[in-house]
């Protein structure tokens, strides 16, 4: 965001390679995060994120920008891809611990395990939210976007985004508390 989307979009429609590259570089991280917190697997998230941009190339002509930013459209594409992914895989979005290369000198098992546990908890907690709440939480707390920015991406006003955010946090807190209680020895 923050770049001149209008001209970039026009250039992309003209088939200019540079425009596509710029859109990709700017939007890929956000799309990756979006996908990762729904899929729970980095490799899958990378593949799906790349697939989002291929779809963008294929369906460029169908997109009518209007007031919506390109990223919002890319989120929509990503949403449908994730749905398809879950249908095909028919599996829960559980984060699995990857096998690590023990020969890697930078490998720090404790730190990575701690990191993955927190990610695992967060992904599990996000499953209790609906699609809009999940998206707002990721945009707000992972991507650190302002409410105004989130409202623009999701096509909602700022007040609605705040309300969604509050409800999402309460739900998350309850779900995390319940999860902690289930782990405490009785």
């Amino acid at each position: 965001m923050g770049f001149n989307e209008g001209s970039l979009w026009q250039q992309a429609r003209q088939g200019e390679k540079r425009a596509f590259v710029e859109i990709y570089d700017r939007c890929y991280p956000a799309i990756f995060n979006y996908v990762f917190y729904r899929v729970g697997d980095r490799d899958q998230a990378e593949d799906l994120a790349a697939e989002v941009f291929i779809r963008m190339v294929e369906k460029l002509h169908t997109f009518q920008p209007g007031d919506r930013p390109i990223l919002a459209w890319l989120y929509t594409i990503a949403y449908h891809l994730v749905i398809d992914f879950h249908r095909k895989e028919a599996r829960a979005t559980l984060v699995e611990l990857e096998e690590n290369d023990l020969s890697d000198p930078t490998y720090q098992p404790e730190a990575q395990i701690e990191e993955r546990i927190s990610q695992y908890q967060l992904v599990r907690a996000l499953r209790f939210l609906n699609e809009v709440q999940r998206q707002v939480i990721v945009l707000k707390f992972v991507e650190r976007r302002s409410n105004c920015e989130i409202g623009s991406l999701l096509g909602k006003d700022e007040g609605a985004i705040k309300s969604i955010q509050h409800r999402a946090i309460r739900t998350l807190r309850k779900s995390l508390e319940a999860e902690e209680q289930s782990y405490e020895p009785s």
Binding site: Y24, Q119, L122
Partner: peptide, 29 residues
């Protein structure tokens, strides 16, 4: 909770995956 979320390390895609994704997009283009 915000601290928890904020403190949660955000997963980053590997540079190779980013490049591969870009190349796939350009190939399609």
């Amino acid at each position: 909770f915000a601290r928890l979320l904020a403190g949660t390390p955000v997963p980053l895609p590997s540079a190779a995956a980013v490049d591969a994704g870009r190349e796939r997009m350009l190939a399609r283009l």
